[in-house]
Design a protein around this nucleic acid. Structure first.
Length: 453
RNA sequence: GGCGGGUUGGCGGAGAGGUUACGCAGCGGAUUGCAAAUCCGUGAAGACCGGUUCGAUUCCGGUACCCGCCUCCA
């Protein structure tokens, strides 16, 4: 069996994946807070861990892999949007989840095995908080429950910092009811205008971090193999998850391997609303970038490095996919190439895997290319509509062929060149050879610009 | 201030202590009425300074620059 090697943020080393339960793999990835459309940064971990999910299924079998990705549907940003719009919270979160599914489906991401909503796990969260209090790791104060970071010696191990270091230069919320400035909220009180659930500490709502600890325990158990998310979550979110889970679970175990994807930039700059380079996935889809092209661009950079979204990359990706789709159009997938699996097994080296795909294409191995690309979530039949030839250009081709035949006799090519230029202006690729004339709609094809016959 | 990551050829972007990454662009050729597409061939690299080594772009140390997190933003 292929050995998959993954970089573990916690040990700062690449490690062999050795499933805790032989033959079964369990993975948890932090999902979105559902208050708005997913932006293209949100989509990066989705594509990265979807690719890992596909690799795991390939190596261990589709039924052997359990992948959990949560929806955070209780959050102050959601509350703010509800207050702003006057809409019920559930309307907002349901709608946003629908968008999320549609947008991530478009990127070729498989649905995880489980997609729990935080609001459906309030009871397990309360139970976990009670357990933390009972074990002396948390305390109630003024309607809040706080985690006592000093009670967990391992606090800071994931992000490589000590509690004292963090306090030194940190901007932490100083609240009178905190024993230590770094203590974080497990539960907080809700006024009548905010969503809340009854609890031993009064009506309230959970802090941000506890949901992932509770849901992963419910769905995957106390210990599991892989926990993923964006590098920005490393601290404090993941650090706090570890503290909660390790202290609440009798076994003291939690995720074995921690994986973090780096951030995304746009045209070399941090994506931000103020710079005007902020895009949602839906924006790109609406601009005409096929989901498959977006996915290809993501896969072109290793997940551990910052990735730059550029229009140029998207254009190159589109050209490559067109070529590969043409090459594999009439074939069936063959064997997945060992070289592609090997690349992915080396810490999900998607860029290396794409290079291997290029080699397969250059070698004319259409069946191998198709099977291997599909392992990466590319060249799937359901994603290819964008590359299909949907227009009939045969009358234009016939006309051009006729003009060309006349020109060959008369040696006057003006009419041929004029029509060719008009076709190219409409985004048509013009191929003339001894065999005849072939017209293909290209990247910028616009039927409205076709020359009128 | 603390912590973490990065710096590869014109551009994008990988692996590997010594042997072509790969893609795009470029250049030369075949082909073409001219092109396009395709095919063949080809030049070009590893921020800087040291160290280890027979040999480092690849390991170690330092410098410079860039980026992220520390603010419930992936």
């Amino acid at each position: 069996m292929t050995t998959i090697r993954l970089y573990n943020t916690k040990s700062r080393r690449e490690e062999d994946l050795q499933p805790l339960i032989p033959g079964k793999v369990r993975m948890y990835v932090c999902g979105p807070t559902v208050y708005d459309r997913a932006h293209i940064g949100n989509a990066r971990p989705v594509v990265v861990f979807d690719t890992l999910f596909r690799l795991l299924r390939h190596v261990y079998g589709a039924d052997a892999v359990t992948y959990v990705r949560n929806f955070t549907d209780v959050d102050d940003k959601i509350n703010a949007k509800a207050a702003e719009t006057g809409r019920p919270i559930r309307d907002i979160t349901d709608e946003t989840i629908g968008w999320y599914h549609a947008d991530m489906d478009a990127l070729g991401a498989l649905r995880p095995t489980h997609e729990p909503r935080a609001t459906e796990y309030i009871t397990p969260m309360i139970r976990m908080i009670e357990g933390l209090i009972a074990r002396g790791h948390a305390y109630a104060a003024e309607g809040h429950v706080l985690f006592d970071v000093r009670s967990f010696p391992g606090y800071g191990a994931l992000s490589g910092r000590s509690v004292d270091d963090m306090i030194a230069g940190a901007r932490v919320e100083v609240a009178p009811y905190k024993r230590d400035p770094m203590d974080f909220v497990l539960w907080k009180p809700s006024g009548d205008d905010l969503p809340g659930w009854p609890s031993p500490w009064g009506r309230g709502r959970p802090g941000w971090h506890i949901e992932c600890s509770a849901m992963s325990r419910e769905l995957l158990g106390e210990a599991f193999d892989i926990h993923g998310g964006g590098i920005d979550l490393q601290f404090p979110h993941h650090e706090n998850e570890i503290a909660q889970s390790c202290c609440a679970n009798p076994s003291g175990q939690f995720a074995k391997i921690w994986m973090h994807n780096e951030m995304l930039q746009v045209e070399g700059k941090k994506m931000s609303k103020s710079l005007g380079n902020f895009f949602t996935v839906r924006d790109l889809l609406d601009q005409g970038f096929p989901g498959e092209v977006i996915r290809f661009v993501y896969l072109g950079t290793h997940y551990s490095k910052p990735m730059d979204w550029t229009a140029d990359k998207a254009a190159q990706a589109e050209a490559t996919l067109r070529k590969w789709r043409a090459l594999t159009r009439d074939g069936q997938p063959g064997q997945v190439a060992d070289t592609v699996v090997a690349a992915l097994a080396g810490d999900v080296n998607t860029a290396g895997a794409l290079a291997e795909l290029h080699k397969l294409a250059n070698a004319g191995d259409a069946a191998g290319l198709l099977a291997s690309a599909q392992l990466l979530g590319l060249l799937l039949p359901e994603m290819g509509a964008w590359a299909e030839v949907t227009v009939d250009l045969s009358t234009h081709a016939d006309r051009l062929a006729a003009l060309r035949a006349e020109a060959m006799a008369s040696k006057d090519f003006a009419a041929v060149d004029a029509m060719k230029a008009a076709l190219m202006a409409a985004g048509v690729e013009v191929r003339m050879s001894k065999a005849g004339v072939e017209l293909l709609p290209g990247a910028g094809f616009d039927a409205a610009k076709l020359p009128v016959l």
